[in-house]
Design a protein around this nucleic acid. Sequence first.
DNA 1: GCTTATTGTTGCTTAGAACAACAGATTGCG
DNA 2: CGCAATCTGTTGTTCTAAGCAACAATAAGC
Lengths: 166, 166
Amino acid sequence: MTERQLPDDSIGNADAPRRERLRRRREVIALGSLENHLGYFVRRLQVWIFHDFVRTLAAHDIRPAQFSVLVVIEANPGLSQADLADTLGIERARLVRLLDGLEKRGLMRREASPVDRRSHALFLTEAGEKALGPVKALAAEHEANLTERLGREKHDALLEALREPG
Amino acid sequence: MTERQLPDDSIGNADAPRRERLRRRREVIALGSLENHLGYFVRRLQVWIFHDFVRTLAAHDIRPAQFSVLVVIEANPGLSQADLADTLGIERARLVRLLDGLEKRGLMRREASPVDRRSHALFLTEAGEKALGPVKALAAEHEANLTERLGREKHDALLEALREPG
DNA sequence: GCTTATTGTTGCTTAGAACAACAGATTGCG
DNA sequence: CGCAATCTGTTGTTCTAAGCAACAATAAGC
């Protein structure tokens, strides 16, 4: 159990029993009209991506939402929670609790906004900036996994296609 | 509240306050290295798709997972729960509860498998088949919404690209 | 035959999403 | 100016999904 032949990453090989079952199965299973629904495939891909992301960054205990928060704060120091929530499509209430966790871990801090006493200005702490280096490297590693799965052309085409609409 | 000027579909116009805030905001907010992560955009798209799907099929109270279950049973009458769960990437335990709901609503039924006394053979009921017609029509309507959002070329390209790998 | 694996199921835990309400602060406007 | 409407961050609550462990009944492998 300590060493394995294949790097059973528990994601990439999660379908080993599936292949077994497929082997044993006479007729292949049809998706029916699901074939015409982009949402089904987007969902499957998204689940794979999240699993791989979480696994790749497990050592740093950074989940996708946390990563996106840290990265956007880094790129826009001093922005408010409302703007951050809005940019990421996260609900304000949810962002509060996300930030609570990150702040408690010393990765970012809330300062009083100099121009609006209601709002906070968000910054990475020095520790946060330092931590984000390796974290971004691992995120890039995850992206490489994804590129391997999709093929570079397809990956790049998807990224370009989805980046546009905003 | 009964009538509106704009068809405020509560998804498509959910970013009305966002546009307001953007208007008021001096500098635009950068995504930083998030720009290079396909997962971020896939996630945003997937959320939009689910919202639109749920909204479009609200009258029938069919959610994406339920829809996929019904469609695959229709396309593969008599298949087992394990095979269905496996095909859709749903956990067996979760499928049990999904089927409980659908069966209680009279949309499908579990029969004893003739070849394996452990497993069930799944079928749509007559009511289920009858209901699935309009439901698939609404799902197609949702797909049209999605196509409108992405543009036909992009929609079709994405569908083709993601359908492949299985 | 006897061990191992599979199937459907239940229970439990955790994470996310969504909504309502609130106090403090700001903005808009008459 | 002064008051109503709006915005900000926050707390609380509810609902759904995801994931894991365990189990009895059954089947498959050797």
